[in-house]
Design a protein around this nucleic acid. Sequence first.
DNA 1: TAGATTTTTGGCTTCGTTGACAAAAATGGC
DNA 2: GCCATTTTTGTCAACGAAGCCAAAAATCTA
Lengths: 358, 358
Amino acid sequence: MSDELNENISSGIEEIVQAKGRGSGNVTINDIARVANVSKKTVSRVINQSPFVKPKTRDHVQAIIKELGFVPDPQARALALRKSFLIGLVYDNPSPQYVVSMQRGILDAFEGTDFQLVLRPCDRSEPEYLARMETFIKQHKPFGLILPPSVSEDEAIAKVMRDQNVDYVRIASVELDDPAHSIRTADFEGGAQAARHLTALGHRHIAHIHGPLSFRSTHERRSGFEHGLAEAGLKLNPNMAVEGGYTFDSGVVAGAELLSRATRPTAIFAGNDEMATGSYVALRKAGLSLPEDMSVVGFDDTPIAGRLWPALTTVRLPIREMGKAAAQLLIDVSHGKKITEVAIFVPELIVRDSTQQI
Amino acid sequence: MSDELNENISSGIEEIVQAKGRGSGNVTINDIARVANVSKKTVSRVINQSPFVKPKTRDHVQAIIKELGFVPDPQARALALRKSFLIGLVYDNPSPQYVVSMQRGILDAFEGTDFQLVLRPCDRSEPEYLARMETFIKQHKPFGLILPPSVSEDEAIAKVMRDQNVDYVRIASVELDDPAHSIRTADFEGGAQAARHLTALGHRHIAHIHGPLSFRSTHERRSGFEHGLAEAGLKLNPNMAVEGGYTFDSGVVAGAELLSRATRPTAIFAGNDEMATGSYVALRKAGLSLPEDMSVVGFDDTPIAGRLWPALTTVRLPIREMGKAAAQLLIDVSHGKKITEVAIFVPELIVRDSTQQI
DNA sequence: TAGATTTTTGGCTTCGTTGACAAAAATGGC
DNA sequence: GCCATTTTTGTCAACGAAGCCAAAAATCTA
């Protein structure tokens, strides 16, 4: 009996391997069912790790799946489940470096899974952006969405996602949502670290180029920075605080503006690396030497920080790790894991060559 | 009759709008068929722009599609067509900036279409990379693949794509494939431009940091460069040519190596912006002033070029436009458009502040 | 060991679309 | 106005999986 069974299986395998090898489509659940001599429903159960399958059956089916190199068709599954295996990265971050790092992290987490990362840039200055978001969700039924700042802070988008009943993870510097939907960064702490570093080097006149006021991170980084200054008995002089747009160009402008003030600061804390890079240019244009004439601290530690001269001292956010954590959270939650605490990423000061003792 | 028809339609629409509004799933082809009083096959024909539909019918159906906000389900279509609406970007380019720019370009072309961009980093140092590629194609049945250098140059990957019968576009500095599958960049010409610029500024001792010899672009850029030097009666001194890996770190090393030579060049042409950035660091470490002591030319014009000090003179490749063209080519070819000539992108020298008269 | 109970398995339908082919409608020629 | 052609439209079965519920097998109980 057992021999006969095995023989049947062997010949079944051979036949299918030959047929599929000639390009007659892929191996499907039906092929597995036929060869394994079970119903396709049972194969489906094995694929989906249903606990209602006898271990013996499961092993048998799995062996045949492996032998035939069967991979379930994501489109067919999506149709039946009314949910695809796409995970969208919805972003509007002005720093391309930030976005690439995050992509990497997400892809790290997808290793060995069937999820695919799709890119969804989101231009919130465009009036239709919410409608587009909704159409995308309706049409493509993504498994989930990952939102880094600043789209993560948009409550209108959050509402759309909830209304459309799609899973999501928001990465932000404040707790915007419940733990199952949040990854948090301790930007406040990062700002404080920047301040402590500069005051420890003896700086007393420290300027700040912060991001747009509509970003939560702007306030967190600045408050943290002020908190750090206060520890050294210092206050942020209001006219030493200039707003930028988290972009390189805005950093150039902001840097120039600071230099036009009556008293020149000896150090600048920029709200992100892009603006810090811009401030380098402004300082150089004014003929200053770095870091002799001015210490500069950035935020994020995107790849450009290490490529500048002098290499930029910056507050490192583990962006790639955050991306990975966000993707993993999405997967874990879908598996029914209960999340009780928001994951918090604490930044770390990376001291390079752009800061020095005064 | 006409009135009656309209009335029926109106009530049908109302009914469906109400039902779907309550979240009972999306509007499907069946709803359209029912309301329009045609078969779903006819609706399908309208969606797919079949020429065998009477204009009157087409307009009628399209009006109802619009009214109900119907969008076809990509998963169901994919299942029936055995081909998804995903387009994969397969990349291994060491410069993250290059990759982001290309992503943007591809997304530009997808505007208003149903295509989604999925990211497929490809690590060719890993032994399984071809098998993974094959599995991805088999499983997800992408509509097409876009391959920038250097994966584009991999003939083993090209074979897999052809065997699996998936459409693709290869972006390369040489003509690797037929016009329907190729986007070409005139790297040779770019190299020549760099040489002409430097010789015109009076430089006679010019070094070259080139990319890995396994990249076609390395040879094209170098040959073009030598060609340009020859126009000025110069030759590339073999020990003034150093190999890098198209990465920042390799640029630092290569720069240092050049400075260790008996005679110091007065200008460097780096094979890409990343390595040019690395050479800045090596030169600065050696105490040189830029551009006074050394002129530097890069290649690509990735965002970092404009962020450096001095801003990098570089040979601009319109990466974003190339990405857009590649995506558009994929779409056009799928629509049956015949391509007789390979699209060639000719680079343009962007003169900034890193080069000066000697 | 028969019957009750629990565990496993299977059958049939559904998801939303397209393909092959058949049927109906429109058009043309006489 | 009738028949042959050509357009246009419709029917029904895929595509490859999962859901619901019933059937079969295994296990337990007395």
